[in-house]
């Protein structure tokens, strides 16, 4: 088995790019205390819209923007029903998952399996000339670079800006945020819509770069659920969530590599692996609480708790 390390890293960077974007978007949303469960449908719908817009306008940039807009609009519906009206966020998100998925297949069927524009690889001058690193990190399309930039940007936003603190405080205790002059409803709306736009961008990354084109299936089905699991796996910390996303990319690639080596293990096993891992992680974290000893302390150090007010609607009395 011949594994070229540079090619492997490059492939992981590409395959994980949309997962990174979607998981980071959801992290922002959940940090504000809102669960947007519609990810899987949103990604698909945004992928379709991006491709169709790019196809009709011959401009991938416009396509990507349209994808982000689609994500924002779906998130706005989640916010309107789940935050403003105080309905179950899970219920709205779940219903939208399926509405968006079928809407994508229905509206996109005219553009199925047609040749369309996509973001071409854009090697970064000088940096792409670097031995090994250049090929691995600096010879991708602009959306993949965006996924790189989004990581420090997100971490910076969350922990080094006033806005990040406001988002975290609302997810933690909306009543206390209100007492300090913050409007929890507005913050939650904004975080949901902003996170949704990133999820939409993830969809665009699929149809315009990672798996260019549109079809039924597109190939990005199921990724939304993975992204939701990764947020938990990464315990709501942007950096750890991203580590999970790249780990998932590695698992996916291993599935492809090992297909030849271990024909008895179906590649699908590697694709579902993140879920049992996530459940396992949660159980371990649960049992470490209140326990003494080095191991429990170590687990607690590397795990975080969900935002305290996640999923709980805020109402002023």
């Amino acid at each position: 088995m011949d594994i070229n390390l540079t090619a492997l890293v490059a492939a992981i960077a590409v395959m994980s790019a949309p997962v990174v974007l979607a998981a980071l978007g959801e992290t922002i949303t959940e940090k504000a205390g809102v669960v947007n469960l519609s990810l899987d449908g949103t990604i698909l719908l945004a992928a379709m819209v991006s491709f169709v817009v790019a196809f009709e306008t011959r401009s991938p940039v416009l396509g990507a923007l349209a994808g982000a807009g689609t994500g924002a609009i779906v998130a706005a519906i989640v916010a309107a029903i789940g935050v403003q009206l105080g309905q179950s966020q899970v219920a709205v998100g779940f219903a939208l998952t399926f509405l968006c998925r079928d809407l994508a297949y229905f509206l996109g069927s005219g553009h199925s399996r047609v040749e369309g524009p996509q973001f071409e690889p854009l090697p970064v001058p000088l940096l792409s000339e670097l031995p090994l690193l250049g090929k691995a990190f600096f010879s991708h399309s602009i959306l993949v670079y965006l996924s790189f930039i989004a990581i420090p940007l997100c971490a910076y936003l969350m922990y080094r800006t006033r806005w990040g603190l406001i988002i975290r405080s609302v997810g933690e205790n909306p009543e206390a945020a209100w007492a300090r002059g913050i409007n929890p409803i507005m913050v939650r709306m904004a975080a949901t819509i902003g996170g949704g736009a990133m999820v939409g961008l993830a969809g665009a990354t699929y149809s315009l770069s990672v798996k260019p084109g549109w079809g039924h299936p597109q190939g990005c089905e199921g990724i939304g659920w993975i992204a939701l699991a990764l947020v938990i796996f990464g315990s709501w910390n942007p950096t750890r969530v991203v580590v999970g996303a790249y780990l998932f990319g590695l698992l996916q690639l291993m599935g492809i590599y090992f297909q030849d080596a271990f024909t008895t293990i179906p590649p699908q096993i590697f694709q579902v692996a993140p879920f049992p891992l996530m459940i396992f992680t949660l159980v371990i974290i649960h049992f470490s609480h209140g326990k003494k000893g080095v191991l429990a302390r170590w687990v607690r150090m590397f795990s975080g708790k969900p935002p305290k007010a996640m999923g709980r609607p805020y109402r002023r009395n």
Partner: peptide
């Protein structure tokens, strides 16, 4: 106001709690 039940953010740091709600970061 100092509320009867402390209205703060238990999982955030003391400094974050001190800053939250201020106009500048």
């Amino acid at each position: 106001m100092l509320y009867q039940e402390p209205l703060d953010f238990p999982q955030l740091s003391v400094l974050d709690n001190f800053i939250a709600g201020a106009d500048a970061f």
